[in-house]
C-alpha cells in the first residue's frame, strides 16, 4: 500500500506541475505536456486499482541495514567534493565491510585493493578523469 500511495502522490504532483507549465494540445498539434499527463494518469489509475483490489504483494518490512548503505551513498557524494571519488569510495567501502562484520584490517585491505584496481582500470587504462576533490583536484 505504501508504494502505491507514494506513487499516486508523486504522479499527482507531476501531473499538476505539467498541467500548469506545459500545453497538452496547441495549434491542432500535441503539446509537450501530453506525454507527461498520459504517463501520470497511467500511474494514478493503476495504483488506485492496486489499492482497491488489495493487490499489494509487498515483501517483508523494510530493514535497517540498507539504511546504513544509504548513509554511505550520501557520504560518497559529500566526501567526493573534498577528497575525490576513489578515496571517498574506499572509505565508504571499508565502513560498509566493517558494518557487515568483517575485521577492520581486512575491510581496509579490501577497500584499498578495490580502489587501486579501479584506479588502474578506469583512470590509467580507460583514461576516465575521475574527480580529485578539493584536496587533490588542483
Amino acid at each position: 500500500m505504501a508504494g502505491a500511495v507514494s506513487l499516486i502522490v508523486a504522479a499527482t504532483a507531476a501531473m499538476i506541475y505539467s498541467l500548469l507549465h506545459y500545453s497538452i494540445w496547441s495549434f491542432g498539434m500535441p503539446g509537450s505536456g501530453l506525454m507527461p499527463v498520459i504517463a501520470c494518469a497511467m500511474i494514478v489509475v493503476a495504483c488506485l486499482w492496486t489499492i482497491l483490489a488489495r493487490d499489494t504483494g509487498e515483501r517483508a518490512r523494510f530493514a535497517s541495514p540498507p539504511l546504513a548503505y544509504c548513509v554511505g551513498f550520501v557520504a560518497i557524494l559529500a566526501l567526493t567534493s573534498v577528497i575525490g571519488l576513489l578515496p571517498a569510495l574506499a572509505i565508504v567501502a571499508a565502513a560498509i565491510l566493517r558494518f557487515e562484520g568483517m575485521s577492520l584490517p581486512r575491510s581496509i585491505l579490501i577497500a584499498v585493493a578495490v580502489a587501486l584496481g579501479s584506479w588502474l582500470l578506469f583512470e590509467r587504462t580507460l583514461m576516465v578523469p575521475l574527480p580529485g576533490g578539493a584536496i587533490w583536484g588542483s
Binding site: L7, A11, A14, A39, M42
Partner: peptide, 17 residues
C-alpha cells in the same frame, strides 16, 4: 502483477519525458 506493470510503464514514460 499486470496492473502494477501499468504503473511502472507510466513511471518509465514519465521519466523519459
Amino acid at each position: 502483477s499486470r496492473i502494477k506493470s501499468v504503473a511502472m510503464i507510466g513511471l518509465g514514460l514519465l521519466l523519459a519525458t
